[in-house]
Design a protein around this nucleic acid. Sequence first.
RNA 1: GGAGACGUGCCGGAGUGGUCGAACGGGCUUGACUCGAAAUCAAGUGUACCCUCUAACGGGUACCGAGGGUUCGAAUCCCUCCGUCUCCGCCA
Length: 424
Amino acid sequence: MLTIQQIREQKERVIAGLEKKRVAGAQQLIDEVLQRDAERRQIQKQHDDVLAESNRVAKSIGQLMKTGQKEEAEKAKAQAKSLKEEAQRLVEALREAERKLQELLATIPNIPHESVPEGVSAEDNEIVEQKGEIPLLGEDALPHWELIVKYDIIDFETGSKVTGSGFPFYKGKGARLQRALLNFFLDRAVEAGYVEVQPPVLVNEASAFGTGQLPDKDGQMYHIERDNLYVIPTAEVPITNMYRDMILEEHQLPIKHVGYTPCFRREAGTWGADVRGLNRLHQFDKVEIVQIRKPEESYAALEEMRHYVQSLLEALELPYRVVKLCGGDMSFTSALTYDMEVFAAGQKKWLEVSSVSNFESYQAARMMLRYRTENKKTELLHTLNGSALAFPRIVAALLENNQTPEGIRIPKALQPYTGFDIIN
RNA sequence: GGAGACGUGCCGGAGUGGUCGAACGGGCUUGACUCGAAAUCAAGUGUACCCUCUAACGGGUACCGAGGGUUCGAAUCCCUCCGUCUCCGCCA
């Protein structure tokens, strides 16, 4: 979240940022935050003063007892008691003020980087780069949801029976392709300097809050009520939260991790004609990269991550474009996001396969993730992450773009991992 | 799942109601000594919030797994929860 210090010190910048993100009533929101903050400080001052007095009296009682001044001690006790009662009233008011302030702060999204374009929706996003040949297929080119049936490699109907819609089975070469992608993506990331981790796929409430899924995306996650655990929507959550409540030393930085997990999303109310087949699932596989950086390095790291993801798409010979999201289309927690979209020639659509974001100190503030600077100050770190990559839409594009009368060709880079060069 | 033990600062480890943010040792930082290093000696060494216009400095409050309670006063007593370890059970 934004810290109260940030809001106090850079009020105008914060308001302008929220407006760019199309937050309604930004000015009033920030005014309310500042007013609540002032209230809180005033109450805390009173509370601290009363407690300080109470502590002084309590200490003097100890002295009086030692020197045997019983009467004096009794008098002091009575005084201490009334101070204590006053403090108790104040502590309740203080908690209430803190709770209100925190609640309000938690609803404020991150503010965008200055380079983020103005805009309200995906149509205002800025295309930064486009690479690769868009394949010219004949009129008989099939979308992937027909190809998977034709070659019997992914089975949605059985998944519906066993679990529900959006939970497919991968079979035969389809399953093997998943395994190939997993190893391919992990091997590449490790070569690029990311340390592999295999995280839990269930996280507690504090972790879900730490990376910003709670309270903003409560309805998006599966929740296990009995144990109060959330099923992760992305590996970002457990991996970034490894460092929650930590003060890192400079020599530990930068931190770079890669992890594979299945991801689970309820996607309530988002089903429609344009999310057929693999385009949107409740369970899907993803390899995620995460970096934790000193603030002054984070934008260089973002570019590095973006180019790394591009190199994967190039290795897979997929035509893609890089899109910089506009203010209105960005996520709650992000300061700058690049989406990577591949062209799927069967459905003739661009599909988002990766989203690479710099959260600056937004997640770090929620997680209390800091480092000690050279002059021994503690300072919030910056967190970043990106998909590298999400499997289903990659598979969709591979199937559609590489279909031939003989079968579906597998790109060269993947062949050592699949053990075959065609699905037929 | 059952029984028991335990949870203190960067680490080890004291502390069973008052002057304890916390002995002692190690580590680390700075200084002295040295051509330099080692050894030795001395000093320092947590986090958050608040107050002082800001900052340094200073002052206050809170924090000894978490949350409650008892008390004028709790790391120390009581309750609940979480975690770790040992034994038994179960099991991939």
